[in-house]
Design a protein around this nucleic acid. Structure first.
Lengths: 216, 216
DNA sequence: ACCTGAACACCGTTCAAGT
DNA sequence: ACCTGAACACCGTTCAAGT
């Protein structure tokens, strides 16, 4: 029953979130070139100068989008890994004691979720890894660290299964991160189809695990 | 002794090349956001409408830049691989009959050249793998194929050394391409230093070859 | 075939002013 | 603290006209 709190300033305190949500949609549907501050302001029903109260310039808005993207992507691969880890207990029982899914399945699930994100949010992922003239901002670098931390945690769990040596987790995390990002780049740039990307993820995990455990 | 052929239209038939060269420099020094058709025209000493005779719009210029980038990158990794292949004969003689360098060194050299390109031409590589709303143009897709073909040729040569099975060359080429592109993305986006990227290339080739030959 | 120059619509950014 | 609205400089694109 609460009426409209006031009338004019339709957005009060949440214009920032409204702009970011709308920007994400534009990014997804029409790409980064179609993203304009003035159009976002128009869509939100505010004047063209209003966004300035929340983003110093267009680059700041893009940075905020990239930041949110990293947080979302980190969450999604963590979720996928957790799900795959739990699935093991519900399997056919042939894989052992039913404690958890095997390490390969977990890595595959995480990598697969990453590449799926790339397919559905191509322009956003592109933005997240875009080459900036002066390097990434601190905020974006920090958010990117969260994605890397998620990869590291997933990899560390795999080391416990004995698939590779704990001492190598740092370097192997970086390598797997690069590989998954590379597969994603082939997807976002339209170089391979999503079907091909799924097969490529399988190959990547297979070769990665075989190579990582080769030193035993 | 040949005088200036005429006077006014300073560029005759090569304005296109002049624009592309200048655009590459701007890309390298100030990034893609600083790239404007009007500024390029000004720098070339022509009117702002002149570029239109060679590029239908800004996107067409960017496509042409990406195209040239793919051709250059393909050449560079071919050259690096050829050099590493030849180096083997000049080695310490311990590696065998002196016919050619070992497969790992060739792959490492090619991957290293790729990542070096990424470090020196960050904005260009970014453009080459950028997510376009309607997918890549045919011309760009064709140029990208040339890069992939270079990778495939290098990989095929490695198969002859018995490092991996010939039947797997197609899939392994795709995987190595993705991995190298991923490492490059970490470089262009400022996520890792060039020192880290060199170590990562080493790890990537080591794990890749160990994993690829694991099935024997 | 290639280039000029005017015209138009749109944009990012700044800033004094309002509430 | 947040938003308005005018102002400015710059841009991409179009197009009739020149050579």
């Amino acid at each position: 029953m609460v009426p409209m709190p006031d009338d004019r300033p339709f957005h009060h305190g949440n214009l920032r979130a409204v702009l970011l949500d709308q920007a994400e949609t534009v990014l997804r549907e029409r790409g980064i070139d179609a993203l304009s501050l003035r159009e976002l302001a128009r869509a939100a029903g505010v004047s063209h100068g209003a966004p300035r109260s929340h983003f110093i310039d267009r680059a700041a808005l893009l940075d905020a989008l990239a930041e949110r993207g990293f947080v979302r992507l980190a969450d999604e691969i963590r979720g996928a890994a957790a799900r795959a880890s739990g699935d093991g207990a519900a399997g056919d029982g042939a894989s052992g004691d039913g404690v958890s899914g095997d390490g390969a399945a977990v890595l595959r699930a995480a990598a697969s979720a990453y590449v799926r994100f790339a397919a559905h949010e191509s322009a956003l992922l592109d933005l997240m890894f875009s080459a900036k003239a002066d390097g990434p901002s601190e905020a974006v670098a920090g958010a990117a660290e969260r994605l890397f931390a998620a990869m590291a945690d997933i990899m560390a769990a795999g080391a416990e299964t004995g698939a590779y040596d704990t001492r190598d987790v740092g370097r192997l995390t970086l390598l797997l991160s690069a590989t998954v990002q590379g597969i994603s780049a082939l997807v976002t740039s339209g170089r391979i189809t999503t079907d091909q990307s799924e097969a490529l993820v399988d190959d990547a995990i297979t070769v990665f695990l075989a190579g990582a455990s080769a030193g035993r």
